[in-house]
Nucleic acid binder design. Structure first.
Lengths: 121, 121
DNA sequence: GACATATTCATCCTTTTGGGTGAATATAGG
DNA sequence: CCTATATTCACCCAAAAGGATGAATATGTC
């Protein structure tokens, strides 16, 4: 599934921070790696994962690799979430309505019993 | 981070399917597991992960464990994504604007040169 | 050509994940 | 009490993730 790659890519704080940095504009791998207390190599791996998810594009210029943010997969995920949320809401609302209806029936049954009792009295 | 748990929980098709099932209403572990070609045990583990993310609640009645969907973390994630997307957009738009301005300056410089040349002629 | 810089590759290590199986636990029902 | 059912627990396994280090590669600079 395509969503998997996007979700996996976002499910890590380091990677989310990298994306935030790239939102401010292109940056080289070393620049991106600088703020983190981890090895350049680890950051390189995170970047590869982000590329796999299509969230980051790489432009190679000489020995420098310039990275930039590609928000499309993010937007696609957002759409999927909106759709899913709507679906869930409708189902959950239907459930609630069903429960309310059930309660109403029970209440009606109770009150009619009460009425009957009163009538008997 | 709290987002991590939610994102990790959603980053698996089996788990997303489980959540979809629970959107239709409460279900026991065995019922939830039925459609999958994997062991009950694996599904049990997926459910634990979903509980860890707060996306699923468990109501124990005798030997049956009834599971239900808890959409709050999902909604929180949606909010985070909307916020993040807005942030990115603003930054990316600023970038674009900056590039356009740069181009405009270059173009202006070029045309002024041309004008000078023409004047020289 | 020699040296420095930017980045990745090849390994290694530990933890987590997603799957499996068999045993344990708890409850329901004769 | 005995048996069946619902679930989890305790392991085992292979793959991936996140980290590290040291070597390799490619490019810029003198």
């Amino acid at each position: 599934m395509d969503l998997d790659d996007t979700l996996i890519a976002l499910a890590d704080d380091t990677r989310r921070t990298i994306l935030g940095r790239l939102a401010a504009g292109e940056a080289r791998v070393t620049e991106v790696a600088a703020p983190f207390g981890i090895s350049l190599n680890s950051v390189s791996k995170h970047i590869r994962l982000l590329e796999r998810a299509g969230l980051v594009r790489r432009r190679i210029a000489g020995r420098d690799h310039f990275l930039s943010l590609e928000p499309k997969p993010f937007d696609e995920l957002t759409q999927w979430m909106a759709k899913t949320r709507d679906f869930w809401s409708s189902r959950l609302n239907a459930l609630e309505a069903a429960l309310r209806a059930e309660d109403a029936i029970k209440a009606a049954a109770k009150s009619s019993k009460r009425t009957v009792k009163r009538k008997r009295k």
